[in-house]
Design a protein around this nucleic acid. Sequence first.
DNA 1: TACGCGCCTG
DNA 2: CAGGCGCGTA
Length: 738
Amino acid sequence: MPDHDSTALLSRQTKRRRVDIGVKRTVGTASAFFAKARATFFSAMNPQGSEHDVEYSVVQHTDGEKSNVLRKLLKRANSYEDAMMPFPGATIISQLLKNNMNKNCGTEPSFQASGLSSAGSEIHQEDACSNSSRDSPQECLSPFGRPTMNQYDMDRLCDEHLRAKRARVENIIRGMSHSPNVALRGNENDRDGAPRSVSPRESYRENKRKQKLPQQQQQSFQQLVSARKEQKREERRQLKQQLEDMQKQLRQLQEKFYQIYDSTDSENNEDGNLSEDSMHSEIIEARARDSMGRSDHEMFDLDPAQFIDRARALIREHEIASDNHPKKDGPKDKDNLHHNFQPESKHLAEALKQELNTAMSQVVDTVVKVFSAKPIRQLPQVFPPIQMPQARFAISGENHNFHTTNQRLQCFGDVIIPNPLDTFSNVPLPSSTDQTEALPLVVRKNSNDQSASGPPPGSHHPVLHQSPLSAAASFSSSSFRHPFPLPLMAYPFQNPLGAPSSAFQGKDRSSPESLDLTRETTSLRTKMSSHHMNHHPCSPAHPPSSTEGLSLSFIKSECGDMQDMSDISPYSGSAMQEGLSPNHLKKAKLMFFYTRYPSSNMLKTFFSDVKFNRCITSQLIKWFSNFREFYYIQMEKYARQAINDGITSTEELCITRDCELYRALNMHYNKANDFEQVPERFLEVAQITLREFFNAIIAGKDVDPSWKKAIYKVICKLDSEVPDIFRSPNCLQELLHE
DNA sequence: TACGCGCCTG
DNA sequence: CAGGCGCGTA
């Protein structure tokens, strides 16, 4: 773990503790002194915030705080793992490994956090270094002992560097092959490696550290070399096993593939004349090979290229078949297709073909993914579905190209619906760096939903996938990026081997129930409003397209009982705003000087220039909740400070316009101090609040977890009338420019 | 069940 | 400042 991380952790912790000193006191006033002294002592002891700090804090904290530390570590580890999943860069291999290893060792997240191979834990090593007084610092820096780097000439240094590099790679591979830290470790390395340029010496040291074996390290290089050889042998063995595992999985895939093929094969045999028709020899060949392979079980040993070739052939076969069927004018075909075929079986055939196409796409995709070591350049293709039947699979041909997620989506859109709208191409698909904070939750939720409930029956239409995108596109400026695509993109990766038939159909991902869009919509609107998005993207002159209509209804259904749906739909009329602007925030802050607990009705009347819906209302309510939070925190802080300062009587607690507490509050709600009419009443209320806190603390009521509630009850009755001028939409100008 | 609130977190 | 969460209330 890099130092800055633990530093951050520490600073968060100390910060939290400073707050917690107040909030979660278990003893009376004496504990405040103690805690304060402890904090001072603590920060004096560790001015630079090293790894000691975490240790120290863990040891010193109460159980709850300790569990906080653990929780954070755990969270971090999880988030690293989660973060790996949806990225195109995460290969199927790592996912397979992850799946396997989660079964075995999914129970020790804290060790995941330490993130090292079985050879030893970095953290443990470092702890041993920093904690144990027996070890000399030199040994810590250079675990291989005396021969320090200074004794080598430059050649040696280069050699070491190369060796270290190699060892590092080997280490990563080994880590992948038998520890649950795949994602984490890789991540860590990336993070470590990217920002700083690694000097040879540094990387040498780092690798030594990582390579350190649990047994006593001998100082001679020969032993090191032999140990390394041992490791390599072990690695080789494990890699081999890994390979075997993957082959096994591939076999399963192929099996599935052939099962599907068999089903349609037998059906084709039913109508009997497909093969005698003008079938390409390639297809017949493929079939011949096929049946042979099936009888001999040799197909399992096909190499990937062959496998993919055959997949392509099959696809071609089916496309030719489906293309030819309607075009056939020969009486024979007509007979076969239109007379001998019952309508039901025709439908069945069509359905089966579609299913087959979908399934085959998945299989081919997965196989390609398994066997493409690295993403190579993508072919710039748009997948015209009918005209270029091969385009869909061209990437899996000689080039063994890697499907980007975007292509994958298009591909499956193709299969399911022949003519997908190309809204996708107009929306900048987020790269891994475009991720916003809301994403992981959405992904997780979706994946859970997906795995929990099977795809609901009913028709699926890709346009539903696009509606969120078009929502983002049509409601936002060009620079605005919404995290919608990522949950969708994450889907194809969810379960590459387990249930491919349901994994890609996307029926449930298109259903509004499974997507937690409420928050997304809220945040979308929030972001819109905070960016002054007052323009109306859908002007009446340009009636919404079908996709826009869908996205509108999407938001409509998600945002629930909006009092006025026109606030999203094309809107022409008054100057009502669709969201809250910074000016509204400023106004709300000024209103806080008068009212701490405004009712939602009151908010509606005072923010009459905003079109209210559920989201806006809760945002405003949240604002005032945040204001109160700050207010009460200040009050408590100053009350405790007063107690610490030896004040014993509430009479001594007065709030004037030049006292520190008032200045802090004014700074928060009236930052520029351009509102010069902070009512006297606010000072009184503040003073009452302060005294309430003071008395409560003095009385030791703060041992009760909900001791503040009584104070809140008092304060909420002290709201005063908000001047009418605040009802005006332009009140800010009027208030601030007087 | 929906809503408002407060607390915690980032 | 916003999101998540748990709780109490209507």
